[in-house]
Simulated assay, not measured.
Amino acid sequence: MSGQEPRTFRSMFISDVHLGSKAAKAEFLIDFLRYHDADIIYLVGDIVDGWRLRRSWHWPQSHNDVVQKLLRKARKGANITYIAGNHDEFARQFQGVHFGGIVVADRAIHETADGKRLLVIHGDQFDTVVHNARWLAYLGDHAYDAAMLVNRVVTRLRQLLGLPYWSFSSWAKVNVKKAVNFIGSFQTMLAEEARRSHVDGVICGHIHHAVIENFGDVQYINTGDWVESCTAVVEHFDGRMEILTWAQVLPEAPDEPFIPLLIEDRVGQAA
């Protein structure tokens, strides 16, 4: 028995899964979706990694299971919006189209239970490298692959030592000065976009750095990712926002509890 009870929220925000990449923690996300549900679900970009898939095909069963899990939630009544990102920019040509109950959009406005209006956008539009120097973005993508390779080696070693999951790449991101400066600049630009859009805040992804912060009168929320930190943002039914981390796979509880037959019972039956 896992001891984990399923939880339901008003809304859920997931981004940067990068299905099609070897770095995707699909098993963790499947487990997270097993124990967490919401009436409204936003997939905030880079759910599928088209850049990786163009280079080499990688689509194991676990990646297909993530897709099927989301489609199943849509069939059960969840309102799901797929916000396109830069790695799945091919989806932007399908804005307004429904696929299996999931609608595709470039951005959306989410209204919380307590009346706040939040801009939901992937955020790559405000990454100057991605937007203005695509070749440099691809070069950076290869460097990121190398960092994720180191991350997988570290993860495997920690598993062998019985230690919990820890992301080397996430640690490096928040400790390297240039990365810290980039994150700060990105957050500021997204907060400004929220002000221009006359909303109370913004929910985005893209930089793989989960956080909930206030920039003056604007709330900035980043959902994180499912290749490094394994995080999602949820909205409680009172409108409160929270970051959840799920860097684990819990054992599934059996459908029926196993009750061993006692020796005394067997003796009694034999008599």
Rank of each mutant, 00 (worst) to 15 (best):
E5L: 11
F9T: 02
S11T: 13
F13L: 07
L19C: 02
G20N: 03
A24T: 13
K25T: 08
K25G: 04
A26S: 11
A26V: 08
F28L: 10
L29D: 03
F32G: 00
L33S: 04
R34Y: 12
H36L: 01
A38P: 03
D39S: 15
I40H: 14
I41V: 04
I41H: 02
G45A: 13
G50Q: 01
W51R: 01
W51Y: 12
W57R: 10
H58Y: 15
H63S: 11
N64L: 11
V67F: 04
L70K: 03
A78I: 10
N86W: 00
H87E: 13
E89D: 11
E89A: 07
A91F: 12
Q93F: 03
F94Y: 14
G96M: 00
V97A: 02
V97D: 04
V97K: 06
H98T: 13
F99V: 12
G100K: 06
R107L: 15
A108V: 10
I109W: 13
T112W: 00
T112E: 03
A113G: 10
D114H: 06
L118Y: 12
I121P: 14
F126E: 04
T128A: 14
Y138I: 10
Y138M: 09
Y144Q: 13
D145K: 07
A147E: 15
M148R: 07
M148E: 07
V150L: 15
N151E: 15
V154E: 00
R156V: 12
R158G: 00
L160H: 13
Y165T: 09
S170W: 02
K173H: 04
K177T: 14
K177V: 14
I183H: 09
G184V: 02
G184A: 08
G184P: 05
Q187V: 02
T188L: 13
T188I: 08
E193G: 01
S197L: 00
H206P: 03
A210R: 07
E213T: 12
N214P: 04
F215C: 11
T223P: 00
G224I: 00
W226F: 07
E228M: 06
S229F: 03
G239N: 01
G239D: 05
G239W: 03
R240K: 13
M241W: 04
W246S: 12
A247Q: 09
V249I: 11
P251N: 13
E252D: 13
P254S: 02
E256V: 12
P257N: 14
F258R: 04
D265Q: 09
R266S: 09
V267R: 01
G268Y: 12
